[in-house]
C-alpha cells in the first residue's frame, strides 16, 4: 500500500493534497498497489469520504483529541505508528509546511531517509526519485533507501485529477501511542487572516513589484491595480531586503509560491530565486523598460515601458471599462 498524508480544511482535502493523491494513485497503479490515506483532526471523517473520487480505498483517521490542534512531532509519531501496523511500501505527502514536517518526523523516528519535493519516482531496486533543488530551478536524480520510502511531492507539479472509476473508501480509526515529549510542540493559538484580504498564495491575480518600483511609496500604484482586479501584491527579494514592503509579500524560493491565473510582473528582472516562486502562474505579463530582462524569456506577454506610466494607465483603462 501507498499511504498519503492528506491535509484538509472544512471537510475537504487541500488542493496540494489532491495533487499528492493524484501522483500517488498513478504510482500505485503502476505498482499494482492500493492507495491509502491518513488524516488528522475533527473533520477528518468528512474529508476522507471525498477521497474515493481520487482512488483511495483505505482511510486511516487518527483518533486522539490531543491531536486536534496541530502538533508536528505527535502527528509524526502517529504516522510512524501507523506505518508500523500497516507496512506500506511508500509514504508520501504534499510538499507543504506540514507535509514536509510530518513526514520528516515519521522518517526520522523510523531512522529512515526522506526525499523532499519529488516530481518523479522510479520504484524498484534501486528506488530512484527526481526531486527539486533550489526551489525547482535545478533537479536532482537520487537514490532513496529504506524499508519504507518517505517522500513529499513538489507543490504545483501535478494537476489534481480524479480517478476514472471512484473507489469505496474503507475508514478505520487509528489510536496512536504518544509520549509527553511528542506533545511538547503544538499550536497554542491561531491568528486568523485579515478579513477581506486576498491571500497571496491563493490569489487569481498577483501584481508583482521589483527593484524598478523604486521605493516604498510607489507601491500604491500596484496596490490600486491589484485592488481593481481583486488580486494581491507580491514583491521580489530586493524589495523586502530594502524594507519597502513586508516579507509576507515576497514571492520566490524563500517567500511564497504563487499560482495565479495571471502574474503581472512590474519592474522585476527575474532572478531564478524569484522565478521559482511564480512559474506556476498560468500567464506571466512583464512590464519592464528592459526588453532583454530575464523575465522576458518567462513571460507570455510584455509591455515595454516604465511601470510608473503603464500601471496607472491600466488602472484607468479598467475603471473606464467598468464604468461603461
Amino acid at each position: 500500500m501507498i499511504i498519503t498524508f492528506v491535509e484538509h480544511d472544512g471537510g475537504r482535502a487541500d488542493r496540494s493534497s489532491l495533487e499528492a493523491l493524484t501522483f500517488a494513485r498513478r504510482l500505485a497503479s503502476g505498482l499494482g498497489d492500493s492507495l491509502g490515506a491518513v488524516l488528522f483532526g475533527p473533520e477528518a471523517a468528512a474529508a476522507a469520504a471525498g477521497l474515493g473520487a481520487y482512488g483511495v480505498t483505505e482511510a486511516h483517521l487518527v483518533d486522539d483529541s490531543r491531536l486536534d490542534a496541530y502538533a508536528p512531532a505527535a502527528w509524526g509519531r502517529s504516522l510512524a505508528g501507523l506505518v508500523g501496523t500497516t507496512s506500506p511500501a511508500i509514504v508520501l505527502a504534499a510538499g507543504t509546511d506540514r507535509g514536509q514536517e510530518v513526514l520528516a518526523y515519521a522518517a526520522a523516528m523510523l531512522d529512515t531517509p526522506m526525499a523532499a519535493n519529488c516530481i518523479e519516482v522510479r520504484p524498484g531496486e534501486p528506488f530512484e526519485v527526481t526531486r527539486q533543488r533550489w526551489g525547482g530551478s535545478l533537479l536532482e536524480e537520487a537514490r532513496l533507501d529504506g524499508a519504507v520510502r518517505f517522500l513529499t511531492i513538489a507543490e504545483h507539479a501535478t494537476q489534481p485529477e480524479e480517478a476514472v472509476a471512484p473507489s469505496t473508501v474503507r475508514v478505520a480509526a487509528f489510536s496512536p501511542t504518544l509520549s509527553e515529549a511528542d506533545l511538547r510542540v503544538r499550536v497554542v493559538a491561531r491568528v486568523a487572516p485579515e478579513v477581506g484580504k486576498v491571500s497571496l498564495a491563493d490569489a487569481r491575480v498577483v501584481v508583482g513589484g521589483g527593484r524598478g518600483v523604486g521605493g516604498a511609496e510607489a507601491f500604491s500604484e500596484l496596490e490600486e491595480l491589484a485592488g481593481l482586479l481583486h488580486g494581491a501584491v507580491g514583491v521580489s527579494r530586493v524589495v523586502t531586503s530594502a524594507g519597502w514592503r513586508p516579507h509576507s509579500q515576497q514571492v520566490g524560493q524563500t517567500g511564497t509560491r504563487i499560482a495565479p491565473d495571471i502574474y503581472i510582473a512590474c519592474g522585476i528582472s527575474g532572478a531564478i530565486q524569484h522565478i521559482v516562486g511564480c512559474k506556476a502562474a498560468k500567464t506571466i505579463l512583464a512590464i519592464n523598460t528592459d526588453r532583454e530582462a530575464p523575465i522576458m524569456s518567462r513571460a507570455a506577454y510584455a509591455v515595454i515601458g516604465d511601470l510608473h506610466s503603464v500601471v496607472p494607465a491600466l488602472s484607468a483603462e479598467i475603471r473606464r471599462r467598468q464604468a461603461s
Partner: peptide, 20 residues
C-alpha cells in the same frame, strides 16, 4: 516561449485589459 509584446508605455493599456 516567445514573448508577445503588447505595446510600449501607457498606450499598451487597452491591449493589456483586453488580455485580462
Amino acid at each position: 516561449g516567445r514573448v508577445e509584446i503588447l505595446g510600449t508605455g501607457a498606450e499598451a493599456a487597452p491591449a493589456v485589459v483586453d488580455l485580462l
